[in-house]
Design a protein around this nucleic acid. Structure first.
Lengths: 173, 173
DNA sequence: CACCACTAGTAGACAAGTCACCTAGATGCA
DNA sequence: TGCATCTAGGTGACTTGTCTACTAGTGGTG
């Protein structure tokens, strides 16, 4: 599945421990993928038994020993296969839109509150992404430009969401 | 979880069989939620044991008997609770952005092909949503306006995706 | 009349993801 | 010295979601 490929991708950028990976899932790639700790470690184990990843024990700098995971040639090939394969069409899942779809059950104040909470969420996303982009150094190669581009994608969708909320509230007024 | 609430919401609009629900998941609400047949039937069963939904056997018009599921008062209350509760913050999951993030592994042609496939997908979504909106009659009350608004949300995001692709391709050129 | 498509519902196995809990080393601080 | 916190790596139980296959009634077509 996708999580496996993402882990291969992260290890292609740099060797990492499960702990490192988890931190990346909670920060850098968080706006397009997240993963539970347990799942990360189990997926890593599966990748090792598949021979796509190799482990090297290294002494911990501040704490216990780390199990540094390195991508093997087979792992890099598998990553490439995924990148050029047909798009994984994942089912659209938007719980907020589901609420709006059934929001006829709500009175005006409740509806306004619902939309307002979504506006807040979108504003927060927008602010977070803007902050991340500002703190990111100018990209020097294509790989970095592409990673930055995923941020811009998030920004555009956040703005689209806010614009939609504006239009909807105007329409309902 | 969310699927339960969505089913409650659909039954609030009209009583339905599991089969009807599945068809709705494959058509009307498909652009923001989907569900497996097995999951629909099992969730319905759980809702019945919870007393949120009642079953009435009705003779099938064209085929076997149907089990028409009706929302109970408790079910409607549960639906309302969900609609006014804090937003279910679901983890962002975008497999395509994940690919772009790691697309430094690709050569120029492969990258172009990846972006082109996404453009195709976005264009298809846009066309589908436009078609649905055209075939939908003008909303007469607020509930209908809200259901239509979820379509507009999809349209805006599809357009945002296309605009982002344009900008990215220009930047990479 | 055999077959197919559509309607309607069910069961089992499995994959993916979440939650709670656990061990253990290193560091800092009260 | 005790305790909290961060680093590091797990395990087990559970929920959610997917895939495959099955029964069975109805209606149409070759």
């Amino acid at each position: 599945m996708v999580l496996q490929r993402i882990i291969l991708g992260m290890l292609a950028i740099a060797p990492m421990s499960g702990y490192d990976l988890k931190r990346h899932f909670d920060s850098t790639v968080n706006y397009f993928w997240s993963a539970d700790k347990a799942q990360v470690y189990r997926t890593l184990a599966a990748l090792v038994t598949e021979g796509l990843v190799e482990v090297r024990k290294v002494p911990g700098t501040a704490g216990p020993d780390r199990q540094e995971h390195h991508l093997t040639a087979a792992g890099r090939a598998r990553l490439h296969d995924w990148l050029v394969s047909d798009l994984d069409r994942q089912p659209e899942r938007n719980a907020f839109l589901a609420r709006v779809f059934f929001a006829g059950e709500l009175d005006s104040e409740e509806l306004t509150a619902l939309l307002e909470r979504q506006r807040e969420a979108a504003r927060t996303t927008l602010a977070t992404l803007k902050a991340v982009r500002k703190s990111t150094p100018e990209p020097t190669d294509r790989a970095e430009r592409l990673r930055l581009a995923t941020l811009d994608n998030g920004l555009r969708h956040a703005r689209a969401e806010l614009a939609w909320l504006d239009a909807l509230e105007k329409e309902l007024a």
